[in-house]
């Protein structure tokens, strides 16, 4: 189907030009990287940009950079790029598993992680990982660069802290300290390509214990801080897991939609917490666990 809406297309090769275009068009401009969201939004009439700014040729923008103390995921990094790094699978397993759970290969080859957090739909798979790693979002605007902690990034469904005249350059993900592992549990209607009915990221370190974040079960993805606090410094026993499960409903606020009912989401978030915690403990002890299999489907 052709796109009925007409717009101008720009393909600048430097950031200065991007900023000039953003200044000129303001909120009438949309940035195009992978286009797997934007093209659908324009086709279906959800977005009516006057200018589409393709940033794939901007030379200052980066893809993935592995640094000694962390990762930099630039605006050009696709999910397939992220999956191709052994270092990410080894030391940022939660991020790697989240990237693997996004749509299908043909989408991951094009879709970028930065685009995912800019679209900011409640079910975005990359959010729990970024929240658990305490990622920092770097933006460039007319008044220079600024950095926003990922916890302040998501404002409401499809709304972020980004201003219309700004572009996201990338996110920094600090390397978790100590021996650590993680997992991403995604509840779908079936195995394979689907949006999350619920998503849970678990990061587990010898130093700081558990960090947990949910997506798709509230207006914005968020950390489950009450549960984290409960688990802090304690050994994971069956009784403690039951206590943690009791807190789940105070952390999430799911709705009923086309993908599942509210009650089902509430129930499954408790199951996911239990299985996610146990999977991380198993992984820490060197056991192989494929989280794609944990929820069946």
């Amino acid at each position: 189907m052709a796109i009925a809406h007409e717009f101008e297309y720009f393909r600048p090769d430097n950031l200065k030009e991007v900023l000039n275009l953003l200044k000129k068009y303001g909120d009438k401009a949309r940035i195009l990287a992978g286009g797997t969201d934007l093209t659908v939004y324009i086709k279906e009439g959800l977005e009516h940009p006057e200018a589409v700014i393709d940033i794939k040729q901007v030379r200052e923008l980066k893809s993935v950079e592995v640094q000694t103390d962390g990762l930099y995921i630039g605006a050009k990094a696709t999910f397939s790029d992220i999956l191709s790094y052994r270092e990410i699978k080894k030391n940022y397993l939660l991020l790697w598993e989240s990237a693997r759970s996004v749509a299908s290969v043909g989408i991951r080859n094009r879709a970028t992680l930065i685009g995912n957090i800019c679209s900011a739909v409640p079910s975005l798979d990359s959010a729990p990982a970024l929240l658990c790693y305490n990622a920092v979002v770097h933006l460039l605007g007319q008044r220079g660069e600024r950095a926003i902690p990922i916890t302040d990034w998501f404002v409401a469904p499809r709304i972020t802290a980004k201003q219309p005249d700004e572009i996201v350059l990338g996110v920094n993900i600090p390397k978790p300290s100590g021996k650590q592992t993680g997992c991403y549990l995604k509840l779908g209607r079936y195995g394979g390509e689907d949006l999350a009915q619920a998503g849970l990221g678990v990061l587990y370190s010898e130093r700081f214990g558990f960090r947990l974040a949910y997506c798709a079960v509230g207006p914005i993805p968020k950390r489950a801080e009450k549960i984290e606090k409960l688990l802090q410094g304690k050994t994971l026993t069956d009784a403690l897991i039951e206590k943690a499960k009791d807190l789940v409903l105070s952390e999430i606020s799911p709705i009923t939609d086309i993908r599942s009912g509210k009650e089902y989401r509430m129930h499954m978030c408790q199951i996911m917490l239990q299985r996610g915690l146990l999977a991380c403990v198993d992984r820490m002890n060197g056991k192989q666990v494929d989280t794609l299999r944990i929820l069946g489907g």
């Binding site: 189907m1 297309y9 393909r11 195009l32 286009g35 797997t36 093209t39 659908v40 589409v52 393709d54 794939k56 397939s80 290969v105 043909g106 989408i107 080859n109 094009r110």
Partner: peptide, 20 residues
């Protein structure tokens, strides 16, 4: 599905100008 630079993509989500 088609391939762009050796990677499969969804051609319904790619603007023709992007393949310049």
């Amino acid at each position: 599905a088609v391939m762009i630079n050796g990677k499969s993509v969804r051609s319904c989500l790619v603007l023709a100008v992007e393949v310049d």
